[in-house]
Design a protein around this nucleic acid. Structure first.
Lengths: 233, 233
DNA sequence: TGTGACAAAAAAGTCATACTTTTAAGCACC
DNA sequence: GGTGCTTAAAAGTATGACTTTTTTGTCACA
């Protein structure tokens, strides 16, 4: 099969994880390790390691004498970057995109407020640079280039907040931004208002105006949510 | 050894995870599977499965010919409930508690605002009940009983928000609340103001007043942060 | 002296197999 | 109808052999 150079383990894990998060095995379904080993043509060793990882994501539960049972969606570790990616690749991308965007709209304003307090001069510079990059690529169908700046911008804000939990959401935000760009959940060109807001956030952080940074970021989030309402059912 | 009834895997995983998050192995340290197998007196099979899980948490990275190397703290999957628990049990509990509380102060007000819109009558009832439970146990050193109601209350709010990502933070909040109660990061009796605020949040949600629920929850969060500043260096 | 190719070894990755432990489920017995 | 024993199914564990990747060291050659 398509045994990636990445190793059997990765291949089986990705395939199974994708299938489970896609709902191919309804909760309560039972998988048996021997069966999986046969299906993927790998040893039980490999399957067991995969199952252990899936178990650590709370996607499945393994019990003696019964097998590996798929858990209900409510139990999944939805903050695991891999789970997020799998779900964004699957059928309920819209729902997933929305719930992640709501999360962003709660977290990012707070992070921006803190960033205004804690950002280093270097981070302020970086922020401005990325905002300008967004301006430069915001017209003429340069969505990919724009995306790079957009991701970088939000990553810097989250990092500059000085809060570890916020910082670690950088990957999540990146997935969301990439997801909506790559799946037509976006207009042909970015909303000019949003672009302006980013520039202003950079400004506010530079000027140590936490309240303004927070409020402006909130507006960015609101815009993103509205866009999602318009473009995704 | 203290082989728990929970299985070799769990025991080794917990021990290693705890040690790594406690900083016992500085980033870049190299572990070898054979060595670990010997040290814990288990087979390589078990160690490999543990390493795979640790790897999935981004706590370590396993490479051929070099071994299992511990990753830098910035790369850890800090949203994994187990990682959170390990860190709360370890030396940098104060730092961890603070960053989690800041996260709460961003997320919970938003969740409360949404809960006012989406809560079912049953959830409203449950909310009121838990708030009353908090009142009843808020005096006379009944911290454990109080904690149960407190956790339940916040869990309901997060669930009632209707947002999956918020809902899944229930475990995190539970860990934080339990953590601060169990480690003297709290006064002898809960802050009466906080208790009142909880009752009022339940009220606001019941009356579908999103803004008020959000604002009141924000005040709870602010109080929690302030308490942390007072009690933890 | 430096450079590139080649050889060797170390460690994880994979596999096959045998054995152990837990536990659901069926059955007999009261 | 419940209570306890038996059985068998599936995961858990152990072990040893073999493969693959990757670092490192060495040696020949320019």
């Amino acid at each position: 099969m398509t045994t990636q150079a990445t190793g059997l383990h990765t291949h089986v894990l990705d395939t199974l994880g994708l299938a489970i998060t896609a709902g191919e095995y309804p909760p309560g379904s039972v998988l048996r390790t021997d069966e999986l080993a046969q299906r993927f043509d790998v040893s039980r060793t490999v399957v067991r390691e995969v199952v252990r990882v899936l178990e650590s994501m709370h996607l499945v539960e393994s019990r003696r004498r019964v097998g590996v049972t798929v858990r209900a969606m409510e139990e999944w570790n939805v903050y695991d970057p891999r789970v997020i990616r799998w779900r964004l690749a699957g059928a309920d991308r819209p729902r997933q995109l929305r719930s992640l965007t709501v999360l962003r709209s709660a977290v990012e304003p707070a992070a921006a407020g803190l960033a205004a307090v804690h950002a280093t001069p270097e981070q302020c510079r970086e922020l401005t640079e990325q905002a300008l990059g967004m301006v430069a690529t915001s017209r003429g169908r340069q969505l990919e280039a724009y995306l790079v700046h957009d991701i970088a911008f939000h990553r810097v804000v989250l990092n500059a907040s000085g809060n570890e939990m916020f910082a670690r959401l950088g990957d999540v935000v990146a997935e969301v931004l990439a997801g909506r760009t790559h799946h037509q959940v976006m207009f042909d060109d970015p909303d000019p208002a949003a672009v302006t807001l980013h520039v202003q956030v950079a400004e506010a952080v530079r000027e140590r105006d936490g309240r303004r940074a927070e409020e402006l970021t909130r507006q960015i989030a609101v815009g993103a949510l509205r866009e999602l309402d318009v473009l995704a059912p």
